[in-house]
Computed example of a mutant assay.
Amino acid sequence: MTGFALGVDQEEWCGQLRALAAERLRPLAEKGEPGRVNRPLLAALGELGLLERVFASGALELCLLRESLAYGCTEAETALALQGLGAYPVLRAGSEEQRERWLPGVRAGRVVAAFALSEPGAGSDAAALALSATADPAVDPAAGGGWRLSGEKCWISNAPEADFYTVFARTGEGPGAKGVSAFLVPADRPGLSGAPLDMLSPHPIGSLTFDGVPVGPRDLLGEPGRGFRVAMDTLNLFRPSVGAFAVGMARAALDATLAYTAERTAFGGTLSDLQAVAHRVAEMATRTEAARLLVYAAAGAYDRGAGDVPRRAAMAKLLATETAQYVVDHAVQLHGAVALQRGHLLEHLYREVRAPRIYEGASEVQRTIIAKELYAGVVTR
């Protein structure tokens, strides 16, 4: 990628992904039940090698993958992204035993992963986690003891149907973020239960209840008290790609609007002949392109190992998700009542586009991160 322009091979690959999403994956998505894990869709993502690429690629390729799939099938994009989000901590911080046991199934689409960070009282303020991990020598005496998890998680994607959860709990090595540890918790652990939540977006989202769930040292992801860093490392990779998901939706809405307004007749011509319409479409296109450039700039910074990744990632997610909301909303307005019908592309996107402004750090949180990073570089007298 030079000067934020994609190469010919990358453009061709993105085109192939868009076609694949529309022709192969969308039919599977349409057969799924809203709010439930679509295992046939996940299996297809595995068979096509797309889940493998989530773990084998850098941030740039992940963004290209998510944007292209989102353009053709948002359900496929989300299924792929949730697998990556739930399993990336295992890849990054897990033991060899954990990686060998769980990741092959995730890559094949047979094992469903979930990222369990948010709680009823700790959404945007992730360092305020209350899920407790209480030391208990009886949990794993051979390994020197373990912990019992007690509390709740909420708004967890793929819950309660996931096969394992990356869970962040308070082990108390220090205050705030310093006392959080990460655990790999299989879904069949005693004391773990969950329930689905009926949400606006069609993704599988639920709550989890931990009633003394036993976890031992072999379930740790990384070191005790270092779990918050595991979470942030994961989010720094996936935040720009959330922006790519948003850009994919914005581009789909924009293309649909261009086609519709160029053909729809009104007031003696087409809608595109009206300056008010043409100017609005121009604004939609400009904002989408700006967001796309910022997303890929952040992805490039991540792949280069730049020191300003948190700021760039936050900027990319903020601008792209806010832009997608703007573009989809105006696309609906320009289409009129037809876009409000169930099953219309824009009706679907209108429900899909709202959630990314909240999850993985709401827009307000992204602004806080950006400001903090900016002021960290200011020398005061």
Results as ranks from 00 to 15, higher is better:
residue 174 G to H: 06
residue 173 E to Q: 15
residue 180 V to L: 13
residue 179 G to I: 10
residue 221 L to F: 10
residue 174 G to I: 15
residue 212 G to F: 04
residue 200 L to T: 15
residue 240 P to T: 11
residue 220 L to G: 01
residue 223 E to D: 04
residue 212 G to P: 02
residue 180 V to C: 08
residue 190 P to E: 13
residue 167 V to I: 13
residue 179 G to D: 05
residue 161 E to W: 12
residue 230 V to M: 15
residue 190 P to I: 09
residue 239 R to F: 00
residue 233 D to R: 09
residue 235 L to R: 12
residue 207 S to V: 06
residue 202 P to D: 13
residue 174 G to K: 02
residue 217 P to A: 12
residue 241 S to D: 02
residue 197 L to I: 10
residue 199 M to S: 07
residue 173 E to K: 11
residue 176 G to D: 07
residue 217 P to H: 03
residue 235 L to Y: 14
residue 205 I to S: 00
residue 195 A to W: 08
residue 229 R to S: 13
residue 196 P to A: 12
residue 238 F to V: 08
residue 202 P to N: 12
residue 195 A to L: 14
residue 185 V to Q: 03
residue 228 F to K: 02
residue 189 R to C: 06
residue 171 T to M: 01
residue 167 V to D: 00
residue 232 M to H: 12
residue 238 F to P: 05
residue 208 L to R: 07
residue 237 L to V: 13
residue 164 F to G: 08
residue 216 G to K: 00
residue 200 L to Q: 15
residue 235 L to G: 03
residue 193 S to C: 04
residue 168 F to A: 09
residue 171 T to V: 05
residue 166 T to G: 07
residue 224 P to C: 10
residue 189 R to Q: 13
residue 181 S to Y: 09
residue 192 L to F: 14
residue 189 R to K: 13
residue 194 G to I: 01
residue 195 A to Y: 03
residue 186 P to V: 10
residue 207 S to L: 15
residue 161 E to H: 07
residue 210 F to N: 05
residue 233 D to P: 03
residue 174 G to D: 09
residue 235 L to N: 05
residue 238 F to L: 12
residue 228 F to Q: 03
residue 170 R to W: 07
residue 221 L to R: 01
residue 182 A to M: 05
residue 240 P to F: 11
residue 216 G to T: 00
residue 205 I to D: 00
residue 174 G to P: 10
residue 194 G to A: 02
residue 176 G to Y: 15
residue 200 L to A: 03
residue 231 A to E: 14
residue 164 F to S: 11
residue 207 S to F: 08
residue 204 P to M: 04
residue 199 M to N: 05
residue 202 P to H: 10
residue 165 Y to D: 00
residue 220 L to H: 06
residue 168 F to H: 06
residue 215 V to M: 02
residue 239 R to M: 12
residue 176 G to R: 09
residue 175 P to L: 08
residue 240 P to N: 08
residue 177 A to E: 15
residue 215 V to Q: 00
residue 240 P to G: 09
residue 183 F to H: 03
residue 209 T to E: 09
residue 225 G to I: 01
residue 195 A to F: 10
residue 188 D to M: 02
residue 177 A to Q: 14
residue 193 S to P: 06
residue 235 L to C: 05
residue 208 L to N: 02
residue 209 T to F: 04
residue 241 S to M: 07
residue 187 A to G: 09
residue 166 T to Y: 07
residue 180 V to N: 05
residue 209 T to W: 09
residue 194 G to P: 04
residue 175 P to D: 06
residue 187 A to D: 02
residue 184 L to N: 04
residue 173 E to R: 13
residue 195 A to M: 11
residue 238 F to S: 08
residue 177 A to G: 07
residue 174 G to M: 07
residue 224 P to G: 10
residue 225 G to E: 04
residue 186 P to T: 11
residue 168 F to Y: 13
residue 189 R to F: 06
residue 168 F to S: 08
residue 200 L to V: 15
residue 173 E to V: 13
residue 195 A to Q: 08
residue 217 P to W: 10
residue 196 P to M: 00
residue 165 Y to A: 00
residue 183 F to M: 12
residue 228 F to L: 06
